[in-house]
Nucleic acid binder design. Structure first.
Length: 879
DNA sequence: GACCTCACG
DNA sequence: ACGTACGTGAGGTCT
């Protein structure tokens, strides 16, 4: 068996990784995605091929002779984006740390070096594999030299493999003839001119027929078609130059040592350190535990499983300034508790025997009277431990969320790395795999106790640093005065839940089913066949191929059948309106009728979870089920709200802010005209229309009002003429004119929005009125799309976020005041600008007053905060 | 698990 | 030239 050498085209693979993968950044904001992708593909190939030798070729930055000659002739390559450029030294550093050979040579391209080493190795009788993203390398393929080209197709990486035979099969020419093809076709990215009028088809024909450009030129009269003949005649010089440029030099004077290219263990301590710094978590798992141990701190955990031991421990804990606590539990039961007194006293207390969950939770409740409880997620703990005051607790997850709201989760291992000097801790998955807590407890898995310890350790250790950073970033008040009290408010809402009439929900679903079946039959008849209407793919084929409706491909994978597309198609064919109705009904049935039915608790109420660390802007979100998207816009859907009811003796009071985001905009921008408008107008959209279109208020047409409303929304979303034109089905030009008129009418708005973008670019983040931050890394992107997105985000987030801050403040005040006044009414839902209160009938007047006062008084703005309030025996009536 | 579609503010 | 409105969560299909 012959030896094998793997040659990697460094820049090309880095490039591929950069464009094929989402952009990753570490905590320092360094871009790392391309390096990560490079390593992944490299290790994948290494595992497949198991080569004895490995080397990675890089171009040196100076232009090389092949390009120099042509670049003098015409233009230069387009520049590398900064996000990629900064990763070039990084990958070299990583490869060096892994002891992997790097080759480059002044005056030669990476291609040339790959070609040179490939030929030399082949001559030695080795098998050669070249890994590149560049098809030019195909000219090097032989029976012993394999060219492997990774391709990313819809997120999945597949690799195309080429020996001579595969090249022949795919291109109908031999590998060396690939040069001839390229010389004819040209390649703008490589600055190879080619000859005009010859593309892939013609070039292939020519080379298959004549074998080479020279031979074709000699038999010029036989060259077909005429256009190619003339072009070759006229540009023969160019073709020969192109050929020279396209030829990879396989005989460069490279000093190459096989000894140095020998594959050793790449998982070195240096590489481990670097992976750690770059936050390549998955990569770290590949390292030998011994290597990892050198680098990570040893933590010692103790187990306490007897009553007197626990008593002593809590006694001691009460004397500390703060303790770390974790409560590992599911909905029903507690399985293990973690307790940290200081960095050397880390305990796990497994539930069992006399140490019941209730007992331990009571101990924690008492402990909270004496010291501060630090935990990853206080609201989760509240499901078992009755803490009542924000002053008793520190919530590490919320602190970390405020510091960076863009993360998808806030786990102890991530936080240790970010806030405890890069400390590497095992993640939950490493400790428990996919095992549930219950199962882990039943099987007495070691990982369970360790997980309890880590979960208590990190918030304990990170508290100081997190608070310091909250102070530093000006978000301490947001944390103390908004988010931390909100934990208790939301916990109360989750616990109360909202009553739902299960029977009515069921019969609503059944009614839908009847109509859905009718529609299904009708649609199949109209289509002339049975198919799955829920499948956009099948539906697209029916509509656009079988029935021949107009409309091109819209999405990456096929035809778009989204509602706005179908709306426009409705006049073309009756099937379209039926499909739209079918869609609407099946949505109501599956998501709402069935979906809500499945999550009604034993108490007949639905207990949603309100997530406080999800959104980028500061809003809360609602899951399992989502109660923030219950239908309201269409009457049929809106009827679902009738099944949400207060318990006997109670009614619903529903209060929503009137256009809170526009009012926030008026305040933050300080635009006197808009502020004045709010002081006068009952109907802001109407007034906007009147001012923008210069017509008297009572002559505003419905269309003008609609347009003005859309512009108002657009402003809040980070206006773009394209977006507005989509929304209003008008041309971009008209949309741009509306926007311009709007800015003329309210002159300070434009300055305000521009300022947000400018500040966002300068500081890397934007802020709400209360100091909440949203980082906007997209603003620095070299990609137009990403950057434009960043600009819209910079305009929208301070507005949406400030509105979110305001209603959070109102919720806290309403909750606290009802508690203080000993009322039995309770806050049950928040829907971004709306609060729903299950109100004791005797308390209606008082609760109305509280809602009104606390909602309008949550913030002092230059315009009034206006609240609409309704009462009803179900949510439908109260809205 | 990605993608599409659609419900809400 | 690029190809979009901002923020979410859930259910369905298809690979």
């Amino acid at each position: 068996m012959s030896e094998k050498i793997l040659l990697i085209d460094g820049h090309s693979i880095l490039n591929r990784a950069f464009y094929g993968l989402p952009d990753l950044t570490n905590a320092e904001g360094r871009h790392t995605g391309a390096v990560y992708g490079f390593l992944n593909i490299m290790f994948r190939i290494m595992e497949e091929e198991k080569p004895e030798y490995l080397t990675v070729a890089f171009d040196l930055s100076a232009p090389t002779f092949r390009h120099k000659r042509y670049e003098a002739y015409k233009g230069t390559r387009k520049p590398m984006p900064e996000e990629l450029r900064e990763q070039v030294p990084l990958i070299k550093e990583m490869l060096s740390a892994m002891g992997i050979n790097i080759m480059s040579l002044e005056g030669y391209e990476a291609d040339d070096l790959l070609g040179t080493v490939a030929r030399r190795s082949e001559a030695k009788g080795m098998d050669v594999t070249i890994l590149s993203g560049d098809r030019d390398l195909l000219q090097l393929a032989t029976d012993k030299v394999l060219i492997r080209l990774p391709k990313t197709v819809r997120g999945k990486t597949t690799i195309e493999n080429y020996h001579t035979a595969e090249v022949l099969e795919k291109y109908q020419v031999t590998p060396p003839q690939i040069i001839e093809l390229k010389a004819l076709m040209g390649d703008s990215s490589d600055n190879i001119p080619g000859i005009p009028g010859v593309g892939e088809k013609t070039a292939t024909k020519m080379i298959v027929q004549f074998g080479s450009i020279e031979n074709a030129h000699e038999h010029l009269e036989e060259v077909k078609p005429n256009k190619a003949k003339e072009s070759l005649r006229e540009h023969y010089d160019m073709a020969q130059l192109s050929k020279e440029l396209a030829t990879i030099n396989t005989d460069s004077p490279l000093e190459f040592s096989y000894e140095k290219a020998k594959v050793e263990n790449p998982y070195t301590p240096e590489a481990y350190e670097l992976c750690k710094r770059l936050e390549f978590k998955n990569m770290l798992n590949r390292f030998d535990p011994a290597t990892a141990a050198d680098s990570s701190m040893e933590l010692e955990f103790f187990t306490c499983n007897d009553l007197s031991g626990v008593e002593a421990l809590f006694e001691k804990a009460g004397k500390k300034d703060q303790v770390g606590i974790s409560v590992l539990a599911d909905q029903e039961e507690v399985y293990s508790v973690g307790l940290v007194l200081d960095e050397n006293e880390i305990y796990q207390i497994p539930v069992g025997g006399l140490l019941t969950g209730e007992y331990l939770c009571t101990k924690i409740e008492k402990l909270a009277q004496e010291t501060v409880i630090c935990a990853m997620d206080i609201k989760a703990a509240l499901k078992h431990v009755a803490l009542t005051k924000p002053e008793q607790v520190f919530d590490a997850g919320i602190a970390a969320y405020l510091l960076n709201p863009l993360k998808s989760s806030y786990t102890h291992d991530d936080m240790a790395r970010e806030y405890l000097n890069g400390m590497m801790l095992p993640a939950k998955e490493d400790l428990l795999g996919k095992t549930s807590l219950k199962k882990a407890w039943e099987d007495e898995m070691e990982g369970l106790g360790n997980y309890a310890c880590y979960q208590a350790f990190v918030p304990y250790m990170a508290r100081e640093e997190l608070l310091r950073r909250l102070d530093e970033t000006g978000m301490r008040k947001v944390y103390d005065e908004i988010e931390l009290p909100l934990v208790f408010t939301l916990d109360s809402m989750e616990k109360w839940g909202i009553a739902v009439k299960g029977e009515e929900l069921k019969s609503y679903g059944e009614k839908l089913s009847v109509r859905i079946q009718e529609l299904e039959k009708t649609i199949w008849q109209e289509a002339g066949e049975e198919f799955n209407i829920n499948s956009p793919k099948q539906l697209g084929v029916i509509l656009f191929e079988k029935l021949g409706l107009p409309g091109g491909k819209k999405t990456k994978t096929g035809y778009s059948t989204a509602a706005d597309i179908l709306d426009k198609l409705a006049p073309e064919h009756v099937i379209v309106k039926d499909i739209l109705e079918y869609r609407q009904l099946t949505k109501l049935k599956s998501t709402y009728a069935d979906g809500l039915g499945n999550v009604i608790g034993k108490d007949g109420r639905i207990h949603s979870t309100f997530n406080q660390t999800i959104t980028a802007t500061g809003r809360i979100s609602s899951t399992e089920p989502n109660l923030q998207n219950i239908p309201v816009r269409m009457e049929l859907g809106r009827l679902i709200r009738k099944v949400f009811v207060p318990e006997d003796g109670y009614v619903f009071l529903d209060a929503d802010y009137s256009q809170i985001e526009l009012r926030v905009l008026a305040h933050m921008s300080g635009d006197e005209k808009l502020i004045q408008a709010y002081r006068e107008a009952e109907d802001i959209h109407r007034l906007t229309a009147s001012q923008v279109f210069h017509v008297p208020l009572d002559e505003v047409t419905p269309l003008q009002r609609r347009n003005a409303k859309a512009v108002n929304f657009g402003i809040v979303y980070g206006i773009s003429s394209f977006g507005l034109s989509q929304d209003l089905s008008i041309t971009r030009k008209e949309a741009a004119a509306y926007i311009e008129k709007y800015f003329e009418t309210y002159p300070k708005i434009k300055g305000f929005l521009d300022g947000l973008v400018k500040d966002g670019k300068e500081y890397g983040y934007v802020t709400t009125m209360f100091g909440r931050r949203r980082p906007v890394p997209e603003l620095k992107s070299s990609n137009f799309m990403q950057r434009s997105f960043g600009e819209r985000v910079a305009m929208n987030s301070p507005i949406q976020g400030t509105a979110a801050d305001i209603i959070k403040i109102a919720m806290n005040h309403v909750y606290e005041r009802m508690k203080k006044e000993g009322l039995q009414s309770r806050l049950v839902l928040q829907v971004h600008d709306e609060l729903l209160i299950e109100t004791k009938k005797e308390e209606i007047e008082e609760v109305s007053r509280i809602l009104e006062e606390e909602m309008t008084g949550a913030a002092e703005l230059k315009v009034e905060l206006d609240v609409d309030m309704h009462q009803g025996d179900n949510w439908y009536e109260a809205k």
